[in-house]
Simulated assay, not measured.
Amino acid sequence: MVGCAVTTGVGAAVNTAGVRPSDTVLVLGCGGVGLNAIQGARLAGARRIIAADISDEKLEQTRVFGATDLINSARENLADRVRQLTDGRGVEIAIEAIGLPRTIESAYEVLARGGTAVVAGQVADGMRISIDPFVMSDQELSLIGSNYGSSKPDTDFPMLIDHYMNSRIDLDSLVTSVIGLQDINEAFDQMKRGIGIRSVITY
């Protein structure tokens, strides 16, 4: 887990976005990367962390990792709800952890003046997005990519393990099942259906 989603998500918040204690952070997509982006924002001391997803089950899991507010974007207008939660200001940091053009655009659209949208989700080759360059310059907005959480594995892996050993990040709650090798096909089926977060295989 540390070699994949944990480093990608925590790094997107801590390394790429550089979340500060004064920031309100929005995380779009609450799978493995999104949950760890939430953890990273909490680790950096963000004053408010808003989680957005279309699954109530995934949203409820985000509270364990530090989310303070939840938005089901299948039922609520994301931009309207974000502005309601931030007194119309928007968020300083938005981390997109899905990799879809529309959610990337949504992350950008809810930024406060001077805010930064981080694309941490894996985007399919050839996808394009549309943004208003006037708004970018007028509001001094940034849209940046995050590859593997802008991490340096030789230093970041030991640091993440140290965070875990000192209870600053939670790895145990990422594991939703421990299975035998004979159950691997069922685990893949559950993953495709969006059930659970991570399975550990023992053999």
Rank of each mutant, 00 (worst) to 15 (best):
I54S: 06
A120Q: 08
I201K: 08
E96F: 04
E60G: 06
I144N: 04
Y148S: 10
Y164S: 03
A107H: 04
Q39F: 02
V10H: 00
D172V: 04
L43K: 11
G32E: 05
Q39W: 03
L100T: 13
S146N: 05
A107M: 03
D183S: 05
P153C: 07
L100E: 10
V119F: 01
L181C: 14
M165Q: 13
D80R: 13
I144F: 06
I131V: 11
L143K: 01
D156Q: 09
M159R: 14
I169W: 00
A52Q: 02
G9K: 00
I50W: 00
N185P: 10
Q190V: 11
R128D: 14
I144G: 07
T7Q: 12
N77V: 15
L59F: 07
Q182N: 15
A13K: 01
L28G: 09
G196W: 04
I195P: 07
L43S: 08
T68F: 01
T16S: 05
G40M: 03
G45S: 11
D172G: 05
F188Q: 09
E140K: 15
G45V: 10
D156T: 12
T155E: 13
I71C: 12
N77G: 15
Y203E: 15
N77L: 12
P101V: 09
M159E: 15
T86Q: 08
D53F: 06
D132M: 13
D80C: 13
L171W: 01
D56R: 03
N72M: 11
G196S: 11
G126H: 03
A107Q: 06
R128G: 14
N15D: 12
P153F: 07
D170N: 10
I131P: 02
V175A: 07
S177L: 06
I197Y: 01
E92V: 03
G99A: 09
A74G: 10
Q84N: 14
M191K: 06
A41T: 04
A46F: 02
I95R: 00
V82H: 09
R42P: 04
V119Y: 02
I95C: 02
D23V: 07
I129M: 05
G29V: 01
A112F: 09
A51M: 04
R128F: 12
A187C: 07
D132I: 13
I54C: 03
M191V: 10
V2P: 05
R193K: 12
A117I: 00
S137C: 15
I201W: 08
R75L: 15
N72Q: 09
S106L: 12
Q61Y: 04
A74C: 12
I201A: 09
V175E: 05
I129G: 06
P153N: 07
N72A: 12
L181T: 14
D138Y: 14
N15K: 09
D56Y: 09
S199Q: 08
R20K: 14
V33K: 03
L171V: 07
L160K: 00
Q122C: 14
P153A: 00
R81F: 12
I144C: 07
A112Y: 04
V33R: 02
S137N: 15
F188M: 13
